[in-house]
Amino acid sequence: MSVTAHAPGHASGHEPGHDAGKRDFLKLVAAAGAAVGVGAIVWPMIDSMNPSADVLALGSVEVDLAPVPVGQAITVVWRGKPMFIRHRSPEEIKAAQDVKLSQLTDPQTDAERVKAGHEQWLVVIGICTHLGCIPLGNKPTDPRGEYGGWFCPCHGSQYDTSGRVRHGPAPLNLALAPYEFTSDTKIKIG
């Protein structure tokens, strides 16, 4: 773009410095104020993309465990995520408890991952900690991997009967969600 008018006669913003100091200070205050203002308006805009109140309010689901036979697992949805609930057999519990922590990628005892007195129930978030696929192993026909837990079809991560990662690229065990037993056969997730 060209300009028809002449270039300015005086350089931008210079004049005898009689009170240049005061002016610079004022400029600084104004600029700081503007920066604060912009920051203050940017936050609501960012926050508007966080989960809204109706999403946060969808707190909890109740699950009846009675129909799940030993050795089987079910999937329920909590906050839009699959939750794996597995009814473990005594052998599976023993296998999970006997693993040495030194063999684990993400060392955690089985006891830390179930509720005391309800060791037969394993409740984990069914999302592979590698890149978010849903591991196989809930249906009787699914492959469960070498360790009898879950097998992720995306990149071959394998989980044991405590949902701990034993093989593959996944860095962490299957995550736990907050839940409690409301009776012997009922849990409330969330």
Binding site: S2, G9, G13
Partner: peptide
Amino acid sequence: LHITGSNNPLGIDPKGPQDTLP
């Protein structure tokens, strides 16, 4: 606007640097 330059309250064209500011 940047080709023609801005109009102004007097409606006359700037005649030189003394008429404008950066």
